[in-house]
């Protein structure tokens, strides 16, 4: 029996979520007195994971197009070879693409949106965010193999150095009938999923021409930009920025909402964020009931001042 974590990489580097997943795995391995093994694709510097509690890393080398079936197959095979029983992954779009496939290949039960360390280990019970962040459900995984999908920023990153052993694994080539072409957004841009801070604009900003306010604030903070649903429906901003119950989920450390009323569907999707700030000129806006900090005022006056203040703060 062993715990295995899937360590996601981007351009060869471990993602921040990989460090969180391995920290979580380390604690679970300690509590169950087992080893912690990692699987990564194309890591260019496997040694970087040494500090985060991994005993052995299988680094799969492949230049295959991103076909969920093939990646899931490679993960499942290596998981079994390592003698894994619990598989831990993050919640990126890619891992949520692959792991439903893995769960069928391994006949494993799978819990997504896990927000905490297991509340019980035998049986394994996991606290999951449900009803789009309007509540929690505790789910027991009952099969021999189990998959835990943890939500970003829900556990934290802890160091624990181990004697890391690295094994390179050359993936055999497999047939795929897929052609895949990936289109990266602006390289500079931070994605909502990976961001620690998200700045979001609503209909209160009146029109797309005013979005430099949101972008300047985001740039100052190193944040990702987001928007409410009507804003993307009207084409002021791209779909990919729509957050909420029917858009992208946000689980950042800081969420700043400008000119967003705070409708229940919006709040549901961003509620997993730790600290929420609202800037709105209507004191009755429902967002004031959901936020930690609020400014009642005109965004067009408040936000430029905030950007100024932050620039001074950053240069201190």
């Amino acid at each position: 029996m062993a715990i295995v974590v899937y360590l996601e990489t981007e351009d060869g580097n471990f993602k921040k979520s990989a460090l969180e997943v391995s920290s979580y795995g380390r604690k679970l391995a300690d509590e169950t007195k087992t080893n912690l093994y990692g699987i990564a694709f194309n890591s260019s510097d496997p040694d970087k994971i040494r500090k985060y509690g991994i005993d052995k890393l299988v680094n799969i080398k492949t230049d295959h197009v991103f076909d969920a079936r093939i990646f899931a197959d490679l993960l499942s095979k290596n998981f079994k070879e390592l003698g894994g029983t619990i598989f831990i992954t993050g919640s990126s779009a890619d891992s949520r693409f692959i792991f439903p496939v893995v769960s069928i290949l391994l006949d494993a039960s799978y819990a997504t949106n896990v927000v905490d360390f297991p509340s019980g280990i035998s049986p394994l019970v996991l606290k999951r965010s449900a009803f789009t962040n309007k509540g929690f459900v505790f789910t027991e995984l009952k099969t021999k193999y189990k998959i835990i999908g943890i939500l970003n920023n829900s556990y934290g990153i802890f160091e624990s150095e181990r004697k890391l052993e690295v094994k390179e694994y050359m993936a055999e080539s497999q047939d795929s009938n897929l052609q895949v072409e990936s289109i990266k957004e602006d390289e500079e841009k931070i994605s909502i999923a990976d961001a620690e801070i998200v700045v979001s604009g609503g209909r209160g900003l009146k029109g797309p021409e005013n979005w430099d306010l949101v972008e300047d604030l985001a740039k100052t903070l190193g944040a990702a930009t987001a928007c409410s649903k009507p804003v993307s429906d009207m084409g002021w901003r791209p779909h990919s920025e729509h957050v909420g119950q029917t858009g992208k989920p946000v689980a950042s450390n800081l969420y700043i909402a400008i000119g967003v009323s705070g409708a229940i569907q919006h709040l549901a999707g961003i509620n997993a964020s730790k600290c929420k700030v609202v800037i709105n000129n209507d004191p009755e806006a429902p967002f004031f009931k959901a936020a930690d900090y609020g400014v009642i005022g005109d965004a067009f006056e408040v936000v430029p001042k905030l950007i100024d203040g932050l620039k001074k703060f950053k240069s201190r």
Binding site: F66, V180, S182, I183, K184, A193, D194, H239
Partner: peptide, 9 residues
Amino acid sequence: ETDGGKENI
């Protein structure tokens, strides 16, 4: 839709 962009498949 991916976390940082899109993929045509």
